[in-house]
Computed example of a mutant assay.
Amino acid sequence: MKRIGLLSSILLCSLLFAQNDKTKILTEILDKIKENYIDEKVFKSLDSLFQSEIKSGQLSSSLNEKDFAENLTQKLRAATKDKHFFVKYLANYSPQKNINEKEQEKQNNFSNSLENFGFEKVERLKGNIGYINYKGFAELKSSKKALEAAMNFVENTNSLIIDLRENGGADNAMLVEFCSYFFDKNINLYTTYFRNSGKTVKNRIQSNVAGKKYLNKNIYILTSPKTFSAGEALAYFLQERKLAKVIGEKTGGAANPVDPYYIQNKYLLLVPDGKITSTYSGKNWEHIGIIPDKIVSQENALKTAYLLALQEIINHKAKTELSENDIRNLIIKLNQ
């Protein structure tokens, strides 16, 4: 009986220690959000919610760090309606010290190269239609050459399909670079206001890009609920300026850019600390998502875009490697 009592005491102490540890972590997370989150008004209600949960111990009662992080992510997103909030438990994480910029760039380059810098597939479909399956915006310096190669490959196509159905976003500089391939003028595309610094940054289209620009041609962008952040931005900016038609399903609705924070070297916290504003519409897609020009299931988005591109060839009597009769037969075959 004494042994059982001793084990119970040890377990109780462990539970209390774990709860106190998570309470400290939660408090630090809330401090970071308070300092940096873009919407100060929303934070007040968020703070009230979590302070009550800290006192009750409801949120920090679990011993499982992964579940704690996932639960916190869900609560942050539910309370703010901001899908960019994210908390992840970092198992066996140790911060890298004294790593220079060149070494960091080398590591990023290698890591991104394992996924071909987000370019899953680049090809020419029958009828001289370009197709780029792009899954994520890797860091600009390391992925610029892959973008150049992709755009040079589709240079001579009659129209272009950009598949963003699985694109989760990421690097802002790469987003601006990609957008620059579709504009012939150096314009301020959008601004980003950062609450923590009070600064507003202009995001300008690049007049000169390494590859060939894709101008005055039909562009179709495929979307799904998984299309997120910078993936949404590419669709949004080309759609609003009538440079592309969006085909598929409504996107996730996450426009606010984030910064990462490491909490006691145990958790990664992403806090939305900025607000994007289009210089064309004065708006963004936060909480709304991108509404496609043609709404179809994500599974049928590619076929739908391909059919539209082929029909445009017939409508404008554009020259391809196929005859008009061949294209009509291809359309019939796709519709079967």
Rank of each mutant, 00 (worst) to 15 (best):
F237A: 02
E103Y: 10
K88M: 09
A301D: 03
N112E: 15
K32A: 10
A309V: 03
K97N: 15
V42I: 14
K242F: 13
E120H: 09
H84R: 13
Y267E: 04
N172M: 15
T191L: 03
L164K: 07
L30G: 09
L238Y: 05
I187P: 03
F85N: 05
H287F: 12
Y181N: 12
A309Q: 06
N196H: 15
A244Y: 01
L222V: 14
L308D: 14
N256W: 02
T23N: 14
I276F: 02
F110E: 07
T320M: 02
G5N: 11
K266W: 06
Q96P: 02
E101L: 08
L15Y: 07
N315F: 03
Y193F: 14
P225A: 06
K202M: 10
N167I: 07
D184P: 06
S48P: 14
Q107I: 10
D67K: 15
F194S: 03
N208V: 10
G130F: 05
A309I: 05
I4M: 06
K266Q: 15
D273A: 03
Q104V: 02
K145V: 12
F50S: 05
T23P: 02
K44E: 15
T80W: 12
L46G: 00
L269G: 08
I132R: 11
L12Q: 10
N218Y: 02
G127S: 09
N158H: 15
S9K: 14
I162M: 10
L269M: 14
D184M: 10
K88P: 02
I38G: 05
M1P: 09
Y280W: 11
K126D: 14
A210V: 05
N284H: 09
V271R: 05
N265I: 04
G5V: 03
H316R: 08
N335A: 07
L59A: 12
K126E: 11
W285K: 11
K283A: 12
V246M: 03
A305S: 13
K226H: 13
K294D: 06
N196A: 11
C13P: 00
T304C: 06
K275H: 06
E232G: 06
Q311G: 00
K317P: 00
Q336F: 06
T251A: 05
H316M: 02
Q107T: 08
S111N: 09
A18V: 00
A244N: 01
K213D: 04
G248S: 11
K145G: 08
F117I: 08
I33W: 02
I295V: 14
L222S: 08
T304Q: 07
L334H: 05
T223C: 01
K83H: 03
D82N: 12
E321D: 14
L302W: 10
Y267A: 08
K317D: 11
D259I: 04
L15I: 08
K141F: 11
N156F: 11
A18G: 02
